[in-house]
Amino acid sequence: MCAQPAPEATPGRVVLDARDIARALTRISHEILERNKGAGDLVLLGIPSRGVPLAERIAERITSVEGYDVPTGSLDVTMYRDDLRLKPARALLHTEIPESGIDGRTVVLVDDVLFSGRTIRAALDALNDIGRPRAVRLAVLVDRGHRELPIRADFVGKNLPTSLVERVRVTLAGVDEVDAVTIHGEGDTSEPTGEAS
């Protein structure tokens, strides 16, 4: 969530490259299908900005396996964040709920990095105002630990043990230049961004 491309002081260490990301997304797609016993009633909602292209890629893979389109959308959680009052007002990102709605469906939230869990808490509140899903699941590309709330992911691309001073950055072709997950360590002097919340 909010993975703003920060000015790079160091190039960072690549943890996942494009092929690793592709394999992780393929596995997540199959796990979602297995867990849900097919793609019926599924809705994929990406959390902007990097969660949205991830949700679209997972939807493509599910479509190629199951043969029909999965409704995909995006869910902006800015107004539901618990740190809204701590920073100047932030621009809203795009929310698009599929026309079929989310009532009675299984919603899979998709985000790039799971960190404190606060973004997901905000997303659950946002969902609550939009409808009543039958179940809500969480898929993330990277789980970097350091949870501050009792929230866990159902589908994880890679568990990445990190220290709190490190920053995890996800770039995706389409939004960024290349697919990659990088870690920027202590030596990195650039401003920590709220990318991995």
């Binding site: 107004m79 621009a91 809203l92 990102l93 795009h94 929310t95 105002d129 939009i130 409808g131």
Partner: peptide, 19 residues
């Protein structure tokens, strides 16, 4: 652009945001 995002709220069952 903020107004464009907020306009879709009018189509939702719960027309309320907590901001």
């Amino acid at each position: 652009s903020t107004a464009a995002e907020l306009r879709s709220l009018a189509d939702r069952p719960i027309k309320k945001l907590p901001a």
